[in-house]
């Protein structure tokens, strides 16, 4: 599903440049649930942003579902993001003047789906994260955990190939974190490929594979026995 080879990325910080990714080789197969771990500054978010086409690599190759991702113009990148990827952010990034339902329906709007279809699909995915009753509420009326579940529903609504989650539990307490991870595991069980960036070991342990990044290189890549989040959720 994801194939990257020798990926490099540096940022210009005033006069000196900061080499963030120093040659990453990394493959993800369909249906995997991968945790990307590392301390802050290890380059994990940068990697995720490049995978999400939110940022561009300086060199290296990147294939997503066998499509080469390089030299994309903004319009093409937007189209690919819409078609291939779903995003979940640490700070939820819901549009604050739109209701939960409208937020979930937004990627479908950019897929030019009909209004009726958008609403049906959005309701379906809201139901999937257990928030069907909250459809007409604004983000400001939801708890942090609920917001993140809306964000997950939104990421899923466009039926992407890959779900990218950047510290999805970073702003949540451990109980809600597990609730969110439970949902992520359920989605993965249904076959969705998911990448989770996190620095919390207990969250990483709930994935099937852990990739450790340190100073811009992968130092460890191991399969783990998945701990189910459902046992912590009543």
């Amino acid at each position: 599903m994801i194939e990257i080879k020798d990926l490099h990325k540096s940022y210009q910080m005033g006069s000196n440049s900061l080499h963030v990714l120093k040659g990453i080789d990394f493959n993800v197969k369909e249906g995997e649930l991968v945790a990307i771990m590392g301390s802050s500054g290890s380059g994990k978010s940068t990697l995720l942003n490049i995978l999400g086409m939110l940022d561009e690599a300086d060199s290296g190759t990147y294939f997503l579902d066998n499509v080469p991702i390089e030299g994309l113009n903004e319009t093409k990148a937007a189209q690919y993001r819409n078609q291939f990827l779903g995003f979940v952010f640490q700070s939820f990034n819901l549009i604050n003047y739109k209701t939960a339902l409208e937020n979930v329906a937004l990627p479908l709007y950019y897929q030019r789906k009909k209004r009726k279809e958008r609403i049906d699909k959005a309701l379906e995915y809201l139901g999937k994260v257990g928030l069907a009753e909250w459809a007409t509420h604004l983000p400001s009326e939801l708890s942090g955990g609920q917001k993140q579940r809306v964000a997950i529903a939104r990421a899923l609504a466009a039926d992407p190939k890959v779900l990218l989650a950047d510290e999805p539990t970073g702003a949540l307490d451990s109980k809600t974190s597990y609730e969110v991870m439970d949902i992520i595991q359920t989605i993965n069980d249904e076959g969705k490929t998911i990448l989770v960036v996190t620095h919390e070991p207990d969250i990483a342990d709930m994935c099937k594979r852990i990739v450790h990044l340190k100073d811009g290189v992968i130092v460890e890549d191991k399969k783990v026995e998945q701990i189910r989040a459902s046992q912590y959720v009543r």
């Binding site: 999400g52 903004e74 319009t75 937007a78 993001r81 937004l106 950019y110």
Partner: peptide, 16 residues
């Protein structure tokens, strides 16, 4: 800015 960024992440083209 933030809203437009979200929209872009969700697939809005620059033109739109």
């Amino acid at each position: 800015t933030k809203e437009l960024g979200i929209r872009k992440a969700l697939g809005a083209s620059p033109r739109s």
